[in-house]
Amino acid sequence: MKIAILGMGAVGRGILEMVDGKDLGLTVTGLADSKSALMDKDGIHIEEVLSAKQERGYCGDKSLSATDIVERADYDLLIEVTPTDAKTGEPATGFIKKAIGRGKHVVTSNKGPIALHYAELQSQARKHRVAVRYEATVGGAIPVMHTLQHGLAGNRVIAIFGILNGTCNFILTRMAAEGLTYDQALLEAREMGYAEADPTYDVKGIDAAIKLVILSNTIWKRNVKLNDVEITGIDMLTTDALRLAEEQHCTIRLIAEAVPERGILRVAPRVLPKNHPLVVNGSLNAITIETDMAGEITLIGKGAGSRETASAIIGDVLFIRDAHARGH
């Protein structure tokens, strides 16, 4: 299958390395970063382009752009892994729509387009008989979308509870384990490369809320928006609060919760017993799905990382190849 990739950051590079190193049957025919692009219908030499990017900071021809790749390259499936803009979803949404319009499948790790335009993108995709998949947008390597859509097919999902932000979980774990203050733990998260220079989206609970919106719309198709989520972050938490929880064999975690029957859609720090299945440590993510037939299922795994996110992306790509594109 021919794939085009937009974005050569942590995720894009992870995908390229895996496609190059593993025998997946995927050929990269188009590639773009923010400054340049290249296309080759016979397949781009991945090692060369990775080292070129590392040496000079851009991957290809500066007179070409991501738009050229989307509109003109010869590919079956577009992998969209450019930065998330949670307010506008651009430029990713534009890229995705153009690819769908050309009858190409799309796989993305970008939360913006999926959180903002899920219904529209899905209906456009149906019209053009292509698939749009976004496993990597929620829970990193955890195959939560596959579990929901395929493994739990036929179940009625009653509720979901999740730890969807690794940065917050890391901070809370460190505050509880070492008695660090919130500021000290945040600093450590930065030093470890878990937190962005501007951690607002993470610590205010917005990133977790965006992922909750994506999960909710995937499951219940009610077209909820970020504004519908009641959000409380972790930035006001004190070390004392964690110690008080600890004294009762409990701890505090940032929990995203959706229970439509009870009108609950919220992200907030919560007190949980330490032996609760959702209490994972460090930057791990965890998601509990409660359904009518299967009961409760909890998935735990790495919520971010170059290879881990590549795993989710490649899972989607191969699923589409096997389910839709056979014989094309």
């Binding site: 509720a159 509870f161 409380t232 006001m236 938490l237 609060a241 929880a245 409990c250 505090i252 929990i255 919760e257 907030a268 720090p269 919560r270 007190v271 949980l272 609760h276 959702l278 509990t288 409660e290 009961g295 409760e296």
Partner: peptide, 11 residues
């Protein structure tokens, strides 16, 4: 005030 509520036991 910020209140941190318990997570209801699931199920």
């Amino acid at each position: 005030l910020l209140i941190i509520e318990p997570l209801e036991e699931i199920g």
